[in-house]
Design a protein around this nucleic acid. Structure first.
Length: 709
DNA sequence: GTAGGGTTAG
């Protein structure tokens, strides 16, 4: 053998190696069969780069009359390897040359199509299968089912499945898994039952598939039944099946049952621990999730991602971002799923500096063109208060879908720019993008926050009549809010009473705050009481109720509510404002003295108040509804956390022309709103403030919300 | 000469 050992080929790990061996073959000038070249090509298909792929194909074309058997081997090698597109390129090559394919060619070809979700190619191949009369071959039929399932065409998969005369347990599993992947969990169970009736023997793989579907569907009782079945029939439970059981219980939120199985495992391997971790995170027990996470010795990307999204989804975005930093330090490379969690965490935090960093990180690491990433970035910039950047990302997107348009419309909406939101909606329609239910939530929100009652009503009916979208509770919520903000409280109540959903906490809350703002005490009391029926410990409702009683001087009732609150340990959510300066986040609570520059901050506050009083500012305590003396109320209002934050912003060094960005957890009060407007004018500074529901841009004495919020 | 199926992040 010309001095080239077989082992040399197997040790070819790079294209360079392959080329060296190829040169050796050519140099040896030994009259040999193509067998060595064939081995070299096969070896080339296992390398991950596209240049190796093309090298393999170019070597292949040098073979004068390749045997179909060899092409089939190449098909298989490519379809199993890291560059399945090689299969399809080879297919094209052979078709152009008119080389015949046999029935052994199709399973690997279809596998490559599945891996690439290349539906059009799959359809073409299916056509060829029929033309060549291979449609009865069970190997090919099974591959076709897998192909259609992978391409999201579950009905077509089922058509092939139904036509089969012989199915084995693998065929059933592929079909059932296809239903599971496409979210048709009812079909999973139906087909599984059918399979049992047909007398097909079950194995542990099929049980894994069905358990996984139970987990996704949250079908605990069916999952339990399968667990019983496994025990009763003495099934051997391997590590996959253990994980599937733990995961099923964990996904259904039954952590005590998941724990039971988990605790019995002799070794807690990575995958099963990740399943436990996600289960805890999902029900909000993030600390338990973190405990498991910390015990995992060799962490992979999936478990890092699970923990990061666990934090992000449990309203602990700061922790999500910190963990992402830690992941960076450990040199774990994120994928798109991780990035989406991170971007969403950033949006929650609202930290613009971090947002910019995450964006450039995503760009640098090759996520910049992905549609879901760009959609998330639009949302992130909007929620971080930078509408300009949100728009920039949106306009530069190579492709946009309905989510992109909806995100941008919502971005304008939360920034109070209803005109732009509506204009964008029309642009979207011109481009033939059909709006969906989420799009309308953005549009209705925009109308509600801008006081556009008639327009809102028009959009609402157009949604139903022109777009055939039946309004969900959220849409009714927006409409109730629209009327509430416009002081049409009776109309709001009427809608609440006639809508086809029972009102929820959010809807009663909307009416309640509006009543408080507009001094409608009687209706406000009614709304607060309805809200408390649904959520007896709702801090906001109790506070409003006690304030309403205080305004009406019904002190006995005030006392009752207060007593109830202290008895149950309920207190009003403490107001807090964050300001981001020079890469640091500073947090202020009301009347906070913790900041190291506290003295200077309060000095600045005094200075600003005297300055603003000269231009007509009088602290207004109307928003402070506790039974204090008038003077005390005025003091309190001056110590609101956002005022402290803005003072800190003013005494700190900021880059020329950069604005002050503040994020507040509650709604901004009337007095702070006038204060911010005046500061923006007198101190020539732009202030962007995110409160509980929206943004206020203060500039030159005016707020973008036009004092309507 | 055949092959195809399983668990974890969203």
């Amino acid at each position: 053998m010309i001095g080239i050992e077989k082992g040399v080929l197997e040790s070819c790990k790079t294209l360079r190696h392959v080329k060296q061996v190829h040169a050796q073959i050519l140099r040896s000038k030994v009259d040999h069969s193509n067998s060595l070249l064939l081995e070299l090509i096969l070896c080339c298909c296992t390398l991950p780069s596209s240049s190796s792929l093309h090298y393999a194909l170019s070597l292949f074309t040098q073979i004068p009359n390749p045997h179909t058997r060899f092409s089939n081997r190449l098909f298989r090698q490519f379809s199993r390897g890291p560059t399945p597109e090689g299969t399809l390129l080879l297919y094209g090559l052979l078709r152009r040359k008119g080389t015949l394919l046999d029935r052994f060619s199709f399973p690997p070809l279809l596998k490559a199509v599945s891996k690439l979700s290349a539906l059009n190619m799959g359809l073409e191949v299916h056509g060829l299968v029929s033309k060549l009369g291979f449609h009865d071959d069970p190997f090919i039929q099974t591959a076709l089912i897998a192909m259609y399932a992978a391409c999201g065409r579950i009905m077509d998969a089922r058509l092939v499945f139904d036509k089969m005369s012989h199915r084995d347990v693998v065929t059933w599993n592929i079909m059932i898994d296809g239903y599971s992947q496409s979210g048709h969990y009812d079909h999973v169970l139906r087909l599984y039952e059918e399979m049992k009736i047909s007398g097909m023997e079950l194995d542990s793989i099929i049980l894994c598939t069905v358990l996984s579907a139970c987990g996704h569907a949250g079908n605990l009782s069916y999952g339990k039944a399968i667990h019983e079945f496994i025990k009763d029939n003495g099934f051997r439970v391997d590590s996959h099946l253990q994980t599937a059981l733990v995961n099923m219980y964990a996904s259904c939120g039954a952590m005590y049952l998941a724990r039971e199985v988990y605790d019995q495992l002799p070794s807690k391997h990575l995958v099963v621990s990740t399943a436990m971790l996600s289960g805890y995170a999902k029900i909000g027990l993030v600390k338990d999730a973190r405990f498991i996470f910390d015990q995992i010795v060799e962490k992979d990307l999936v478990c890092w991602s699970a923990m990061i999204s666990g934090y992000a989804e449990s309203d602990q975005p700061q922790e999500a971002l910190e963990l992402f930093d830690e992941m960076q330090r450990q040199r774990i490379v994120p994928d798109q799923i991780t990035m989406l969690s991170v971007i969403s965490a950033c949006a929650h935090v609202g930290a613009l500096v971090k947002a910019r960093w995450v964006h450039s990180y995503a760009d640098k690491n090759g996520f910049g063109r992905a549609l879901p990433i760009n959609n998330a970035l639009v949302d992130m910039y909007a929620k971080c208060g930078n509408l300009v950047r949100a728009r920039e990302v949106f306009e530069n997107m190579p492709r946009k879908n309905v989510i992109s348009w909806s995100s941008m419309i919502n971005a304008f909406a939360i920034h109070g720019d209803a005109d732009s939101a509506i204009a964008l909606f029309h642009r979207m329609k011109v481009q033939n993008i059909e709006p969906n239910a989420v799009t309308f939530i953005g549009i209705l929100y925009a109308c509600s926050h801008a006081g556009l009652v008639e327009k809102g009503e028009k959009f609402f009916s157009s949604m139903i009549n022109d777009h055939n979208i039946s309004p969900q509770r959220e849409h009714y919520g927006c409409m109730v809010d629209l009327y509430c903000r416009a002081k049409l409280l009776r109309k709001a109540l009427e809608l609440i009473e006639t809508m086809p959903f029972p009102p929820n906490v959010i809807i009663w809350g909307s009416l309640m705050s509006a009543c408080q703002n507009h001094g409608e005490l009687e209706l406000g009391e009614f709304a607060a009481k309805r809200l408390l029926e649904l959520e007896p410990d709702h801090d906001g409702a109790l506070v409003v109720l006690s304030n309403i009683y205080a305004q009406e001087k019904r002190w006995d009732n005030v006392g009752l509510v207060r007593k109830l609150m202290s008895h149950k340990g309920i207190s009003k959510e403490k107001a807090c404002s964050r300001i981001e300066l020079n890469n640091e986040v500073h947090v202020f609570m009301m009347a906070d003295r913790y900041h190291k520059q506290s003295n200077e901050i309060y000095k600045k506050l005094d200075e600003i108040v005297s300055q603003l009083k000269l231009v007509g500012y009088t602290p207004s305590s109307s928003g402070v509804l506790v039974d204090l003396e008038e003077e005390e109320k005025k003091e309190i209002v001056l110590w609101h956390s956002e005022k402290l934050a803005v003072c800190y912003g003013l005494i700190s060094e900021r880059k020329e022309s950069s604005c002050i960005r503040i994020i507040k957890n509650l709604r901004i009060c009337e007095d702070c709103h006038s204060f911010m407007k005046l500061v923006s004018k007198e101190y020539r500074v732009e202030i962007v403030m995110r409160d509980r529901t929206r943004f206020h841009h203060f500039n030159g004495g005016i707020c973008s919300c036009r004092d309507y919020w």
